[in-house]
């Protein structure tokens, strides 16, 4: 197992955002994370990537306990996340944005930084915009930049938070193709996605959260038929 999360819980004051969630992800897998708004998906990501320390529970990554690591330390271990709302370094060029990942992520001693950045820009289709200042990019390009930057940090595990949100169907399917290609680079992926068709099509397994709790975990087909999942998404009357 690449990632093994045990009994993760996060409380904010009286509110329980993530409640006793356990799951694991195998190397090379694309693992989907679904759930209605406020189900705790982003919070779960932040527990894994170290933005918040969990109230209880452990995160084992690559056999190493990384619970409560700071984001920069989690990144050094090989866990990198993207952000739900894209957060490029606005005043930097696309090149420099990606350079931040390449410089401060896990260094690959075989390649120099400029090579890595250029390769990733080509891979993500951003090469034509190399010298554009990030704030001037269109939304689809910003989404790609978010992914490119994370990829430059050379992760083993990439957490993608709604990289398809706000994109039209063509752009979304382009993004899903990119995600499949990322897996070819032997990067394991956990992704949160609202576009049902997209996440069902690309994931090997899916976990569904509701009110911070795990309500289903299995292949896309299994999850799609789970009465609890149907209830959470469509309301009680549709559940058997």
């Amino acid at each position: 197992m690449l990632l093994d999360c045990k009994n993760l819980t996060k409380r904010f004051g009286g509110l329980i955002a993530v409640n006793d969630v356990s799951f694991n992800v195998a190397r090379g897998e694309i693992f989907g994370l679904m759930g209605p708004n406020g189900a705790g998906k982003t919070t779960l990501f932040r527990l894994i990537s170290g933005v918040y320390p969990p109230s209880s529970g452990t995160v084992i990554f690559n056999g190493k306990n990384i619970t409560g690591f700071k984001p920069s330390a989690a990144c050094a271990s090989g866990v990198v996340s993207t952000h739900q709302i894209v957060r490029p370094f606005r005043e930097m060029t696309v090149f420099d944005n990606v350079r931040v990942g390449a410089e401060f992520g896990r260094k690959d001693p075989k390649h120099n930084v400029t090579e890595v950045v250029n390769e990733i820009l080509t891979f993500t289709g951003l090469a034509p915009q190399t010298h554009v200042v990030a704030k001037n990019l269109t939304l689809p390009s910003r989404k790609r930049l978010e992914v490119a930057r994370a990829l430059a940090a050379n992760p083993d595990l990439l957490l993608l938070d709604e990289v398809g949100a706000g994109l039209n169907p063509t752009e979304t399917s382009g993004m899903m193709d990119l995600i499949r290609q990322i897996r070819e680079r032997s990067v394991t992926i956990i992704m949160v996605e609202h576009v049902m068709k997209a996440i069902m099509g690309v994931s090997d397994r899916i976990m569904v959260l509701n009110y911070g709790q795990q309500i289903a975990l299995g292949t896309p087909a299994e999850v799609a038929q789970d009465p609890q999942v149907i209830e959470a998404y469509l309301g009680k009357q549709f559940a058997k």
């Binding site: 990537s49 933005v51 700071k70 984001p71 920069s72 330390a73 989690a74 990144c75 050094a76 990198v80 996340s81 952000h83 957060r87 490029p88 370094f89 606005r90 005043e91 930097m92 420099d96 931040v100 990942g101 401060f104 992520g105 896990r106 930057r149 994370a150 430059a152 940090a153």
Partner: peptide, 16 residues
């Protein structure tokens, strides 16, 4: 500059 523009994003990319 990365920290200045967005500290959280910078940290997830490995900047301490």
């Amino acid at each position: 500059r990365a920290v200045n523009m967005d500290q959280e994003a910078a940290e997830t990319l490995g900047v301490s």
